[in-house]
């Protein structure tokens, strides 16, 4: 790495500059929607209707956030959301990495059956009703377990991790085996530490998925105030007319419109649900941006 300073050719320099320019343009283009949401969330909700808020609030206010935090159920929701995110992510990582390791072993006999069995689950679902009835029969309705247990295995995550493991030198495992380590130990002691970048990525996917989901709360735990999640509580505040096309009752629509949250509150909700995840991000990011040298681990 230290050799780069004297190594730059003219072409390299052009490439570098062009690269910085392109990436800067991408940053500008992609930062806009979020800043826009942020600006609107701090703008007076009546004033927002006039439009034309871009990067900066026109009439600054904290009222939108005060309104949101005025809902007491948010705190319970927040706790449950964190709990499900942590537990769901840990369980999901465990299952996906174990399965990925098993599949990455070329000498595993049932790997074709297992990978097909897994892959198919990505493309079908029995549908809402049978799943609901299954959960009822397993007594999962109205429990915390319904958030983390049914989705423990995600085939997508398994295959992504396996593709990473496939790229690791196989020789590492063989030498460990010669040293008398069993398969679980090899997985745990040798493979897992090498997989940090991909595990961090999958952890991010799992955490965001868990954090953002509200539909399971809605279907299975809506009548359990002690088990509702932050997202679900915020969905309650959100407008209820987005898909009103099925309704033809003008009176009802009028009543509902009175309950519609103003744009600014919606944006503040977006910020409230996104920020906790953004806080986690830097901790995971160093694994897949920082870069790690395999060589160091190898020796």
């Amino acid at each position: 790495m230290s050799s780069k300073a004297f190594n730059l050719t003219r072409g390299e320099r052009v490439f570098s500059i062009a690269n910085y320019v392109v990436l800067t343009i991408i940053v500008i283009a992609t930062v806009y929607p979020f800043l826009n949401v942020l600006a609107i969330s701090f703008n007076d909700s009546v004033d927002t209707v006039r439009g034309g808020i871009y990067l900066w609030p026109r009439e600054f206010t904290l009222e939108n956030y005060e309104t949101i935090f005025g809902y007491k159920s948010l705190l319970t929701g927040f706790k449950i959301s964190i709990l499900r995110t942590v537990i769901g992510t840990v369980l999901g990582l465990l299952s996906a990495s174990m399965l990925a390791y098993v599949l990455s072993r070329p000498d595993f006999r049932s790997s074709k059956f297992l990978s097909t069995f897994l892959a198919l689950t990505m493309y079908f679902s029995g549908g809402m009703v049978p799943i609901y009835i299954l959960f009822r029969d397993l007594n999962l309705l109205g429990t915390f377990a319904v958030y983390v247990l049914p989705g423990i295995v995600s085939a997508f995550n398994v295959f992504v991790i396996r593709s990473f493991m496939d790229g690791l030198p196989y020789a590492l495992q063989e030498s460990a085996k010669l040293d008398g380590a069993n398969d679980f130990k090899i997985f745990y002691k040798i493979i897992l530490p090498l997989c940090k970048p991909v595990l961090a990525t999958i952890a991010l996917f799992l955490a965001v998925g868990q954090w953002n989901s509200w539909f399971d709360t809605y279907l299975y735990n809506g009548n359990k105030p002690s088990l509702t999640t932050l997202q679900y509580e915020l969905m309650k505040i959100l407008d209820s007319t987005q898909q009103g096309s099925a309704m033809t009752n003008a009176n009802d629509l009028a009543n509902k419109m009175a309950q519609v949250s103003p744009e600014s509150i919606k944006m503040a909700i977006t910020i409230v649900v996104t920020v906790p995840i953004l806080v986690v991000y830097p901790f995971l990011q160093r694994y897949f941006v920082g870069g790690m040298t395999l060589g160091a681990v190898k020796s």
């Binding site: 809402m128 809605y218 209820s240 009103g244």
Partner: peptide
């Protein structure tokens, strides 16, 4: 919530 109407 959301789409409302109790369909689901």
């Amino acid at each position: 919530i959301a789409s409302g109407g109790g369909e689901n």
